[in-house]
Design a protein around this nucleic acid. Structure first.
Lengths: 191, 191
DNA sequence: TCTAGAATTGACTAAATAGTCATTCATACA
DNA sequence: TGTATGAATGACTATTTAGTCAATTCTAGA
């Protein structure tokens, strides 16, 4: 049955997510992943021929979810600043609601186990984001900074704020999110 | 002889730095580290009883160097902004000139292999930095943001700019550094 | 030069690893 | 009900791992 097949694959991905994030790629054995997923050791290799295939599949999966979470309702915003604010809030909320996924992506985004091919395929889902930044530069909303710098600063700032909220546990979470947006927007906007 | 002892210890730390950064903690065997350092497998365990002691020693070492690099000549600056600009430039230059060290610190700063004790001891070297940020908040140079948020945003931005320079290879490195400072300063400063 | 103590060595071990494969099991259809 | 197909299993293997330790080499002072 199709559902059961997907069940086991999903269970394996979920187990891998948890363990890779917690103990790293080499720190997690395939036996542990199988056990956590509740399947036999051989089953893992039915779905993912090698351990590297597993982490690449997982990376693709999680990056896709992040992309969809980030872009939600952005189009329906009126001003450019509102589009970016919406994206900011989406990103932070997604990070807070999907902590393991967020940590996984950030931990493995520059890992040698993720192949160039995986990176390429994943990149396609972020074209809308690049386009939006280009638009902001062209229309003079942003200061005269390179596209790649704006993108990295924005994304890394979201990581920083998510970590800040999780680690420092501020009494007013929403203020922390808005503070973060103020900092990055004031930093990047044209003066 | 004292020098030779230090030689081997240094060689081991250097080898571990290179390999841990490249292949991760579990991805690097103690045998590889010994080989890279040009010593026997047993020698590693003379200096560091366990592999975890090795990475903790390394973390302590590198964090100390980073702290000293960051704070150089900051005291002799006149204005508050100049102190922060100096620290920004120090940080970026140190990151560019010590890429492996920088990558290592950033990769392992939230790793489970680094003990709470190591973190505590390391923290002591960053008191001056915390004090400076507190001073900036008190004197109204910074906007009304939590101390921890300012510290994280500043440091993570430096990571972002170092990575941007290394990965995007902009034609004008110095403009990228100053751009980065503008972004983070405009973001954090009181309006 | 001789020697005591420390540093260095690398063969060794018990445990763990990624991946295999012959066997068993579940399902869907005739 | 009988059976054919593919999924699931877990014992197994060849290799690799962190760490040990008895033997060797080096060093500094007498």
């Amino acid at each position: 049955m199709k559902d059961k097949v997907e069940d086991k694959k999903t269970a394996l991905l979920q187990a891998a997510l948890k363990l890779f994030t917690e103990k790293g790629f080499h720190g997690t054995s395939t036996a542990q992943i199988s056990k956590e997923a509740g399947v036999a050791t051989g089953t893992l290799f039915n779905y993912f021929p090698t351990k590297e295939d597993l982490i690449n599949g997982l990376y693709f999966d999680v990056k896709g979810k992040l992309s969809r979470g980030m872009s939600k309702d952005v189009d329906s915003q009126n001003t450019f600043q509102d589009k970016f604010r919406k994206m900011w809030y989406n990103l932070i909320e997604w990070g807070l609601n999907n902590q393991e996924d967020f940590r996984f992506v950030n931990q493995f985004c520059s890992s040698p186990y993720i192949t160039d091919y995986t990176r390429e395929v994943v990149m396609e889902e972020y074209v809308f984001y690049h386009d939006l930044v280009m638009e902001g530069i062209a229309s003079g909303e942003f200061g005269d900074y390179p596209e790649g710098m704006i993108i990295s600063m924005f994304y890394q700032s979201s990581r920083t704020i998510v970590d800040f909220i999780l680690y420092s546990e501020p009494h007013d979470k929403n203020k922390a999110i808005e503070d973060g947006f103020q900092i990055i927007w004031e930093g990047l906007a044209k003066k």
